[in-house]
Design a protein around this nucleic acid. Structure first.
Length: 535
RNA sequence: GCGGGUGUAGCUCAGUGGUAGAGCGUCAGCUUCCCAAGCUGAAUGUCGAGGGUUCGAUCCCCUUCACCCGCUCCA
């Protein structure tokens, strides 16, 4: 399978290594090697340049409903724990689970229901996974436990109605949903999809904090700061690149589902009435970003979520997906999600965590009728000083995975083609066809042969180019072999000093994909590379 | 989480109850005026980790870690 070849090349050439490899590796963690770090840096850099640095708020971009501003942010990985309670991550990512020692299955503690039942002088709590047929399953479980036939169903003495397992204290009296005996379920254990840590040297529960599971919340909580410090009007986008952490249940597929990963996120704040237009703009613009950097539409797709999948406050959500080689035919993996989030996040951080099931959105209350998670109480709404209108901005969130994008670029670039060797025999050539903008090495400089002053001249060119580009010098062995090595690293251009260079000051520049060589002046090398990268 | 498979040099893999090889790659030298396999020479492995059986284990057993495939779960 092709994915194995890609993984093998990544290791061999230094794109990706398994984390802590000498100790046997660590599930869900990966390191970038010398070529990988350049590739990922370029992906990040391309995103930042295209979305933030080169953006101007004077001109209207093609497809955009109007001009807008962009700013950057870099917030901490550890934030106030209340951030995650109001964002909903604490509830969503924080469950108590019980494991069954007999069936080896795992259940959410609060999603197991059961009933007390007595027969043959024994009283147990039979359980089933919450659902329409739970009563029937409980009955079957009880009959089995007491070794009764279906016709003796009347021997079962039920005590009370259906109750949640959370209300049972003694697990020894519980029969698991797939177990034959009592006491096979473990005590409920905290199951945390967020990485927990402790702030302060005395690490007590009061210092408990979490490594962020997404960068977005740092933007929401700084929305007012950015607005106040930059004098921008809406619409305004705030961008951030940074690490996030999730205890994925099943990390798999190379770096696709890593526990430590990097996100490139934008929170785009705009007027509610324009949010639908901005949503479409960002969706289309983000798709184009991938194709501009060389991902072909054959393996890329935009998947709009169905209305049933959407939160009711959202106008739309679309995933940009890539057909990774490790996925089954016709299956795609998410690279980026573009979500219309309404005012859910800002309002949650103001008023307290909103209940996403309510319409219109209302603060989620606990059993005492108080907010389940208190918000900051700070006003995060926006007053338009031209229209004097005050509103809570709606948010469009294009959220991209830097590691997933990098992996997609690696997969897309990987090609094996055939090129004739010096005897005319066809040989397999492995080429990483990176877009020149993201290629780890932009150009290699070679002396054709290691004599006649060619190495000296080539080194001169190399040192000159190195001031501007990541370039590579190699004088060892046959030149053909050096070309092939660069093909495998994805270097788009090779500059070769030959006999003619010493006579007329020209070199050849070889194109990785076409194998064509062109003769250019030594003095023009930097200019030619610059042009070709940016074309 | 469950089931199956795999783990031996940088990579791909062979191998045996008596402490290991091949190809490619790498390095050095020679050759070479343009697309890897011309020549000569060299280096490299605690055979994933821990424990057990054995006189002796890379090989057998147990545990564990990691990777791959399928299912499940998650988003």
């Amino acid at each position: 399978m092709q994915m194995e070849s890609i993984v093998s090349l990544c290791k061999r050439r230094g794109f990706l290594f398994q984390s802590s490899e000498i100790y046997g590796g660590l599930n869900g963690f990966w390191d970038y090697g010398p070529l990988g770090v350049e590739l990922k840096r370029n992906v990040r850099e391309a995103w930042w340049q295209d979305m933030v640095a080169r953006h101007d708020d004077m001109n209207q971009l093609p497809g955009a409903p109007g001009p807008y501003s962009m700013e950057g942010l870099d917030c901490t990985i550890i934030m106030h724990p209340q951030v995650w309670k109001c964002s909903g991550h604490y509830d969503l990512f924080h469950d108590f689970m019980v494991d069954c020692r007999e069936s080896k299955k795992r259940y959410r503690h609060d999603q197991l229901n059961g009933r007390w039942v007595e027969a043959k002088n024994k009283r147990v709590f039979v359980t089933a996974e919450a659902g329409d047929d739970e009563q029937k399953k409980m009955e079957q479980r009880a009959l089995k436990f007491f070794n009764l036939r279906a016709k003796n169903v009347d021997d079962l003495k039920w005590d009370g109605g259906v109750a949640c397992l959370t209300e049972v204290e003694d697990m020894e009296q519980v029969v698991g949903p797939d177990a034959k005996n009592t006491g096979t379920l473990t005590e409920p254990r905290e199951f945390n999809l967020m990485f927990k840590t402790f702030v302060g040297a005395l690490s007590g529960e009061e210092g408990a904090a979490y490594l962020r599971p997404e960068t977005a919340q740092g933007i929401f909580v700084n929305f007012k700061n950015v607005l106040d410090s930059t004098r921008h009007r809406l619409p305004l986008g705030i961008a951030q690149i940074g690490k996030s952490f999730r205890n994925e249940i099943t990390p798999r597929n190379f770096t696709f589902r890593s526990r430590e990963f990097e996100q490139m996120e934008i929170e785009f704040f705009c007027h509610p009435d324009q949010s639908a237009d901005w949503y479409r703009y960002w969706r289309d613009r983000r798709l184009k970003w991938y194709t501009d950097l060389g991902i072909s539409m054959e393996r890329l797709r935009m998947r709009e979520h169905h209305e049933a999948e959407l939160a009711h406050y959202s106008v739309g959500t679309a995933d940009i997906e890539y057909a990774f080689p490790f996925m089954a035919e016709g299956e795609f993996g998410e690279l980026e999600g573009i979500a219309h989030r309404g005012d859910f996040d800002l309002r949650s951080h103001m008023e307290g965590k909103l209940d996403e099931k309510t319409c219109p959105l209302e603060v989620q209350l606990d059993e005492n009728g108080k907010p389940k998670w208190k918000g900051s109480g700070k006003d995060l709404s926006y007053r338009d000083d031209l229209s004097n209108e005050k509103y809570t901005p709606h948010v469009i969130e294009p959220s991209a995975g830097a590691d997933r994008a990098t992996l997609a670029f690696l997969c897309e670039a990987y090609t094996e083609d055939e090129a004739p060797d010096d005897k005319g025999k066809l040989q397999t050539r492995t080429v990483m066809r990176f877009h020149p903008r993201i290629a780890p090495i932009k150009a290699a400089v070679f002396p054709l042969v290691k004599k006649d002053g060619m190495p000296e001249k080539a080194k001169e060119i190399y040192l000159d180019l190195k001031r501007e580009f990541n370039v590579f010098y190699d004088e060892k062995g046959a030149v053909g072999r050096r070309y092939r090595r660069q093909d495998e690293a994805g270097t788009p251009y090779c500059i070769t000093v030959d006999g003619q260079t010493l006579a007329d000051g020209t070199v050849t520049i070889r194109d990785r994909d076409s194998l064509e060589q062109q003769r250019i002046e030594v003095a023009h090398c930097a200019e030619v590379i610059r042009q070709r990268i940016n074309q």
